[in-house]
């Protein structure tokens, strides 16, 4: 990065009070309801949560990938390198998306066009964003495939997606995402559809690429294990809100929010074999009904009347922020 000292002082991406609602015929679904976080250059942030917690919608909103209607970004800002992504016009957003911010998705089977050669899909961002001439672009493409560990890259670049396995396709997706040397990579459950041994390969690959290039990564996952091994900071989301945020060690070692704690008690990997697993009573809330106070309160074993009052994410002593009134008041220690 040349001459961007002023920006170095600021986080790479700063999201403030983002609200994304979906206006459906069954009412207004508050998919993302006041989310704020930031990510520094070169940092890895994990966003974990169950389905419907708003973890993907948060990132899609920033990149203008929410179908509108029914979706609508009601408020907030997402400042990336001085530009508010939520207010940027389509041309400006297109320049950032795919060049400075790249994204990889869950399903490598459907994110590649089956009728185009890998080559054409891979170098497309170069041709569009950097106006590289084609020969040079192909060279870079072959190098990018080599970087993600694809053997015989010069030949394989001429193949079609169906000639690759799932893990290979996800490598291609990563090569494609990284080919413009982005500052931020957003990965939306990129290994969920893959086998564990392939998942381990992909995680190692992302770690290596990140170390080499110093890019920041937002890793969205429902798998606490993957996030624990990869990320420096973690946001735990529930019902469209961040309920706990902090350094990975703290999130896993000293969970403070009752939801985060319950979640960890319910995964078999952390429990002695055969014991009855902790279960969270009830079901995730219906996001189309407004919630007064903490959204987890109806399922929380520590609930008190005070939990029905509005609650904000507040930083505690250890740099870990928790959105639980009782923890903030100091009368609940988990």
């Amino acid at each position: 990065m040349c001459g961007l000292q002023k920006i170095d002082a600021m986080p790479l991406l700063q999201v403030k009070n983002l609200r994304t609602y979906f206006h459906t015929r069954n009412g207004v679904v508050r998919a993302v309801d006041g989310v704020s976080f930031e990510i520094e250059k070169g940092q890895t942030l994990g966003i974990v949560g169950e389905s419907g917690s708003g973890k993907s919608v948060t990132c899609y909103s920033m990149l203008g990938l929410i179908p509108q209607p029914p979706g609508r970004i009601e408020s907030g800002e997402a400042i990336f390198d001085g530009v508010d992504l939520l207010k940027a016009g389509p041309p400006q957003l297109r320049k950032i998306r795919g060049k400075r911010i790249a994204m990889i998705f869950q399903d490598p089977m459907t994110s590649l066009n089956p009728y185009m050669r890998i080559e054409d899909q891979l170098i497309e961002p170069l041709l569009i964003h950097e106006r590289t001439d084609r020969r040079r672009a192909v060279e870079l493409g072959v190098q990018a495939l080599k970087d993600v560990g694809i053997q015989d890259a010069a030949q394989r670049i001429r193949s079609y997606p169906h000639e690759f396995s799932g893990g290979m396709r996800q490598r291609v997706m990563i090569a494609m995402a990284l080919i413009t040397k982005p500052d931020l990579l957003i990965a939306d459950e990129p290994t969920t559809a893959l086998d564990v041994t392939v998942q381990a390969q992909i995680i190692e690959l992302v770690k290596r690429m990140q170390a080499e290039r110093g890019m920041a990564v937002i890793w969205i996952s429902h798998d606490l294990g993957v996030v624990a091994g990869l990320c420096q900071r973690v946001n735990v989301m529930y019902a469209g809100r961040v309920v706990e945020s902090g350094p990975t060690d703290g999130i896993f070692r000293t969970p403070q929010h009752p939801y985060n704690r319950a979640l960890q008690k319910s995964i078999p990997a952390l429990q002695p074999k055969g014991v009855e697993l902790y279960t969270i009573a009830g079901m995730p809330p219906d996001l189309s009904k407004p919630v007064a106070g903490c959204a987890f309160a109806p399922r929380c074993e520590f609930v008190q009347d005070i939990c029905r009052t509005p609650v904000e994410l507040k930083a505690g002593a250890s740099g870990q922020s928790t959105a639980c009134v009782r923890v903030q008041n100091g009368d609940l220690k988990l």
Partner: peptide, 27 residues
């Protein structure tokens, strides 16, 4: 051995100390 070592553990400490057997290629 490879399968077990590829399973992510939701514990950052243990994750860091682990030796991974990373398989090459696909089944």
């Amino acid at each position: 051995k490879a399968l077990v070592s590829a399973v992510p553990i939701p514990d950052p400490e243990r994750e860091k100390q682990r030796q991974r057997v990373i398989l090459t290629g696909d089944p």
